[in-house]
Design a protein around this nucleic acid. Sequence first.
DNA 1: GAGTGGATTTCGCAT
DNA 2: ATGCGAAGTCCACTC
Lengths: 257, 257
Amino acid sequence: MENPTLQEAEATIREALARRKCLIVVGNCWVEYHGRASSKLESGERILIVKEDGSLLVHRAKGYEPVNWQPPGCIFQTMIENETLIVKAIRRKPAEHVKVFFNKIYMVSALSLKDTGTFSLYASEEDMQKAILAEPWLVEEGFKPIAYEKKVEPGFVDVYGVDSEGNFVVVEIKRKTAGREAAFQLARYVDAIKGMVNRPVRGILVAPSIAKGVQRTLDALNLSFKALDPRRCAEILKRSETRKLAEFFGEQHDSRS
Amino acid sequence: MENPTLQEAEATIREALARRKCLIVVGNCWVEYHGRASSKLESGERILIVKEDGSLLVHRAKGYEPVNWQPPGCIFQTMIENETLIVKAIRRKPAEHVKVFFNKIYMVSALSLKDTGTFSLYASEEDMQKAILAEPWLVEEGFKPIAYEKKVEPGFVDVYGVDSEGNFVVVEIKRKTAGREAAFQLARYVDAIKGMVNRPVRGILVAPSIAKGVQRTLDALNLSFKALDPRRCAEILKRSETRKLAEFFGEQHDSRS
DNA sequence: GAGTGGATTTCGCAT
DNA sequence: ATGCGAAGTCCACTC
């Protein structure tokens, strides 16, 4: 629908919201938000999207992020007041709402999108972890994983095992350049494990690279670094027969179970 | 433009991209991404948005987040191959690209959005900091701020000052429920300051609330907690005369300058 | 250009 | 429901 009156637009929008359709509205609007924080957006031309699951997006002409939004699960109201069409999205928990005020509407589209396609992502931190479990030499020759996502005091150790000399090894994985925080995190895990066992404990930070100066932090904390590209891990995972993983999960005992 | 042929759609899209217009395309598509990671999205009906600044969004019928995207600054190519219209967004740094393959297009809109309205946000963590600087009693009776965003080893201390007994006080601000990480962060700052001065150093975590179990962590680390609502801070800031802030910035020396 | 921390982060998973 | 950490996080800001 193009250049509808506010009344026509409201009818279409109301219908679309009731039928849980995807809605696209282009027009001149201003926006108010109150809840976790508060915000005000002055008048301008924007794109409003309301999705089937009750999420709301207000996009400006620039930027990856919506200027205002509301996550899935909202309840909607529409009304016309003073020559203004108001679309209000209300969220219960946390209690918040977004109000979009339109005084001119250029386009309204109500869509029923059929979309069952699967989305798959490769080269996440989880892929790196799986690759290391399948091919432990990626960390170090002779490394043998014992458990993963092992609970220790401050949180969960990504991978935990022994090296060729029988020392315990704590592995912390980052999928991108590791900063100082990663080193501190690993240090906390190593300390926690040290307090539990009676053997030397080494810490290895696995990441594609480390930020400048972090090597010094690692040295001071007596930790080491192993370069590993998440994309290479995805490749290795693909090549590495599923059998290997199956063996691991079969023979080794999953610490989470 | 509704239900165009792929050729008609391509002409419109090419034109819109060349003129840096905002583009909305609704159709059946599949998507590939390669770069920092890789992803594949199978066939389905989605909304593609390309903005003036060269950002790209592919939205499904559900969810706040785009399933695929590209941040601002992309270069675009379009082509038709095997009855398929391909929109390709290329980013130089980091090197990555998204390809959207359409085999059916329901709608194409090329828009020139006029949008100069200002966006303002209230009650951010920064607002809490300003409120504390303007009204230090919010932290504790007798607290006197000395500096803010002070650089110490691990990072920046939110606010730094002295209490009524002359002890140094490090304040860590969180805008929402503080987790264990916040306690650790504060502990690191306190330790860092302790190494620099010859007086007792206290650490106060300021947040609307703390997560379950964090009180125990705070106790163990000898830190305390002060409840403070960011919304209230925004209120106080509004009421608190700008004069007070001006005084502070005039008399005290901004540690950042 | 890299590093650091915040976000109305969102999202998913585990407790 | 809550807590916790990852994210192709994005983004703003400092160095």
